[in-house]
């Protein structure tokens, strides 16, 4: 059987929840960021798949994924800047040590 939309959607959903699982269980901020990247990628994959199989006469999904990639890059840069700043002040990037930021 030729793999199609459903297969790719399965991969993307699986990747999404893998990312979610990682986000829940990791304590290190950098690994949490990695989980977020996985989630973002699964979404991108979704966009591309829909673009290819459902609306091939349009390019919206493609552009969305390009913009998502751009924004993800920016997000990663900012997140890492914040993480490094946190490390400077707390000597740790454990998410549990950042609890006081709720205030």
């Amino acid at each position: 059987m030729q793999p199609g939309l459903y297969h790719i959607l399965f991969i993307s959903a699986a990747l999404f929840f893998i990312g979610v699982f990682g986000f829940f269980t990791r304590r290190n901020l950098i690994t949490i960021l990695m989980s977020v990247e996985l989630v973002l990628n699964s979404v991108n994959l979704n966009f591309i798949a829909f673009n290819k199989y459902v609306w091939p006469h349009k390019m919206d999904g493609l552009f969305f994924s390009i913009f998502v990639i751009a924004i993800a890059a920016a997000e990663a840069a900012v997140a890492i800047a914040i993480i490094i700043n946190l490390y400077r002040s707390h000597q740790s990037i454990d998410v549990e040590n950042a609890e006081e930021m709720k205030f």
Partner: peptide
């Protein structure tokens, strides 16, 4: 899926950029 351009962007930005940053 024959989306060569997106694939190239993915490799350049994610593989080459973000991962290295991480």
């Amino acid at each position: 899926m024959q989306y060569d351009f997106v694939a190239a962007v993915q490799i350049v930005v994610y593989v080459g950029g973000i991962t290295v940053l991480i």
